[in-house]
Design a protein around this nucleic acid. Structure first.
Lengths: 252, 252
DNA sequence: ACGCGCGTGTGACATGATGTGGCTTTTCGT
DNA sequence: ACGAAAAGCCACATCATGTCACACGCGCGT
């Protein structure tokens, strides 16, 4: 195991856990604590990690921002959903991806394409995709929302609507059999609604926690959504509502 | 087995395993380690592999992006320059920041403001600023350049030119007393030139390595630059050129 | 044959990575 | 507020790895 590999895995660990203890890392990688500290010092100099007494955390820019905190909630479920959703995407497509946490996982799951065009309003999604070979990224800019690390304003809508994506992939705050797809943030909801108007095929990605939460703002009805990708058991009312509206269900 | 064949197989191995150790490769191909290193140097020059201590890895995937790699070069100097440049910025201003590595450090140095508006075309700069309290971030979107993690296209230019910033802060690839401010990438240079047209006050941030490098594309003359922030000793020809053009010098 | 370019091996030297011990700083219970 | 324990930092030793300069051998062509 080279230093490079160790640091790469350390960062991966960090991104999954948010923070690690030096002693744990030392035993985990079977090196001295001083060596771990040196790795951490390197990462900190690059701004990729943040040193704290006894351990290491994600840096300021990536820490404690709501969207990234929520990335770690239900992480396994979201990762599974993301991989299932990635299988719906084919080489050569143009897809639009919004700014939810499941979308971030999706961006990381989009590997192995040779010619994929992605439009997004999310800093995190764009950043993850820039590391994937074969993916061209178009970022919808505008005034950024610090919580979501994404742009929802008129400018972002205008840019995103200039594309004709094969699939529009949205994550939703909550899903209700009766009321359809809901969200919490007015700006985010407005952005999604604006995209729905011009979408050819809408794919919603959602971990199962979305079925038991209550949203406040209506975004879409089942009839507007072509595919719903979810993990675990999908409640019967949702299955019924989807069947009636013609929404395909994909279980991760 | 010719060198060509060996390198081809080395790349194939790399693509299957992601990374290889120099010692293993040397025994595998029954050549000296130095020979393997020479192969790897060639591949790295072509961007087809990435050298790490003790081995070689694929250039894509988890590897750091070029802009983040370059953040590490001259990191201390750039950090110092960034702090000096931050002191030129006052609360309430609107500033435009471009996508260079020094600009990334500047973004991290912009702390303690209560009302600052920043316009940028860089993912990294925007990401760093989103967590600074009191900073509103406007991101110029468009097609993203994976190396720079920024947008340079017409869309980004149009958006950025919609602001009237109090200061336009640019980093430059090279600075020459006779030819002025230079860059390497045509897209990046084009973006900067487009901003210069409408800039009220141009601030250039540069670590001292910029003075000894040669750029290929002309971006600006000294007369267009109001402030130049640099670290260490500024060469006499630069000082003279700046004085003649009225460019203020700030030493970090 | 001769010289030339190129790839390769070799050894000296430079750089990098890691562990260890002494010392300073931080943390936390009392 | 104090002091012990934990954690961090630094300097040094050691070993692995990288780089460079030079030498050798092989094919090639005027």
């Amino acid at each position: 195991m080279t230093q490079f590999d160790r640091i790469a895995r350390l960062v991966a660990l960090l991104e999954r856990q948010g923070s690690c203890a030096i002693t744990e890392l030392a035993t985990h990688f079977a090196v001295s604590e001083e060596t771990i500290r040196r790795d951490v010092r390197l990462l900190e100099a690059e701004g990729r990690a943040f040193k704290v007494h006894g351990g290491v955390t994600l840096p300021d820019g990536r820490r404690e921002t709501p969207v990234l905190v929520r990335m770690r909630e239900q992480a396994e479920a979201k990762r599974a959903v993301a991989h299932r959703a990635a299988s719906l995407i084919e080489d050569g497509m143009t897809v639009l991806i919004d700014s939810g946490t499941t979308s971030c996982w999706l961006a990381r799951a989009l590997t192995g394409f040779s010619r994929l065009t992605v439009v997004t309003n999310s800093l995190e999604v764009a950043g993850a995709l820039l590391n994937q070979a074969g993916v061209r990224v178009h970022l919808a800019g505008g005034a950024l929302n610090a919580d979501y690390r994404a742009a929802f304003d008129r400018e972002a809508v205008r840019y995103a609507r200039g594309f004709a994506p094969d699939a529009t992939i949205l994550s939703m705050g909550a899903i209700d059999a009766a009321r359809g797809f809901l969200d919490f943030d007015p700006d985010e909801a407005g952005f999604k609604r604006a995209l729905l108007d011009v979408a050819r095929r809408v794919v919603v990605v959602a971990d199962s926690s979305k079925f038991v939460r209550a949203g406040t703002i209506h975004v879409a009805d089942f009839a507007q959504v072509a595919d719903l990708v979810a993990d675990g058991a999908i409640p019967d009312p949702i299955v019924t509502a989807a069947a009636r509206a013609g929404t395909r269900l994909h279980r991760a």
